[in-house]
Amino acid sequence: MSGELITLYVTAIVLVAVTGLYYLLVTTSLIRAVIGLELVTKSITLGLILAGRLTGKVGLGQALAITLIVVEVVVLVVAVGLILLAHRHTNKVDTRDLRSIKG
């Protein structure tokens, strides 16, 4: 794999991760925040596989990626569960409603 292509891969991964993180921070919708999180996870999955591929440890990279996918999907399920609970209390999915613990 050529150096330029690797640079492109890494750039794409960083861009998507930055996009996801930024979205997580600026959105007011809880669901959208989780979408941002998912984008970050995707870029990391890709990054792990790329790292494994470059060092010739494709198996290792895949093993890590698979475990990562399983773990993150469970985190997502819990997050959505919490969002639905919040919705039950406030009837909205707004991050600004989850700001009462302060100080």
């Binding site: 470059l54 060092t55 010739g56 494709v58 198996g59 290792l60």
Partner: peptide, 8 residues
């Protein structure tokens, strides 16, 4: 290094 095939 080229891709080596270690089985996942």
């Amino acid at each position: 290094t080229a891709a080596a095939a270690d089985d996942v």
